[in-house]
Simulated assay, not measured.
Amino acid sequence: MGIESVRVPQAKVALSTASVYPESTAAAFEIAARLGYDGVEVMVWTDPVSQDVEALRRLSDFHGVPILAVHAPCLLITQRVWSTDPWTKLVRARAAAETLGASTVVVHPPFRWQRTYAREFERGVWRMADETDVRFAVENMYPWRYRDREMLAYAPDWDPTRNDYRHFTIDLSHTATARNDTLAMVDRMGDRLGHVHIADGSGSAKDEHLVPGRGAQPCAEVLERLAARGFDGHVVVEVNTRRAMSAAEREEDLAEALAYTRLHLAAPGAAPPADGTGGEQGGRRAAGRRMGRRKA
Rank of each mutant, 00 (worst) to 15 (best):
G283M: 14
A93G: 12
D47K: 03
E224A: 13
V186M: 11
T182S: 14
Y154D: 09
E249T: 08
V49E: 04
P22T: 10
H167A: 15
T261G: 08
G203L: 00
T46F: 12
S246R: 02
F121P: 02
E54N: 13
A55I: 03
E221G: 07
G292M: 00
A247E: 09
Q79M: 12
R289P: 02
H108G: 01
A205F: 12
G36Q: 02
F29M: 00
R262W: 00
K12I: 01
E23S: 14
K295P: 07
V53A: 15
A176L: 02
V211D: 05
V125E: 01
A248T: 10
V13Q: 03
H234K: 06
P109C: 07
E249P: 12
L152Q: 15
V239R: 00
H234W: 05
F29N: 04
R57L: 02
A244I: 04
A26S: 15
W87P: 07
D61F: 02
W144D: 00
D159L: 09
T261F: 08
A137H: 11
T177A: 15
M141F: 11
W82C: 06
P73H: 10
N163G: 09
T104F: 03
A93D: 02
S204L: 13
W82V: 02
L193W: 09
L183A: 09
M245V: 13
V40M: 08
F168G: 09
R229V: 03
D253S: 10
A137N: 13
A155W: 07
D181N: 15
G101E: 01
A18K: 05
L263V: 00
D164A: 14
A153H: 08
P9C: 07
L100P: 01
G213D: 04
D133A: 08
G124W: 00
L263P: 08
R58V: 11
P22N: 14
L223A: 08
R242M: 15
A244Y: 00
P272I: 13
V53L: 01
M141N: 08
S24G: 00
F111M: 15
E280C: 01
A26W: 05
I3V: 15
F168I: 05
P48G: 04
V107C: 11
T84G: 01
A102Y: 00
L59D: 04
S246Y: 10
R135V: 12
A118F: 13
W144T: 05
D275Q: 09
R166I: 06
R179G: 07
R57S: 02
T277A: 15
S83E: 12
Q79W: 10
G64L: 04
E238A: 05
L100C: 02
N163A: 14
V42Y: 08
V91W: 11
D200R: 09
V235H: 05
L226I: 05
P156V: 05
M185I: 15
D159P: 03
L265N: 02
A32S: 04
V42A: 07
W113S: 14
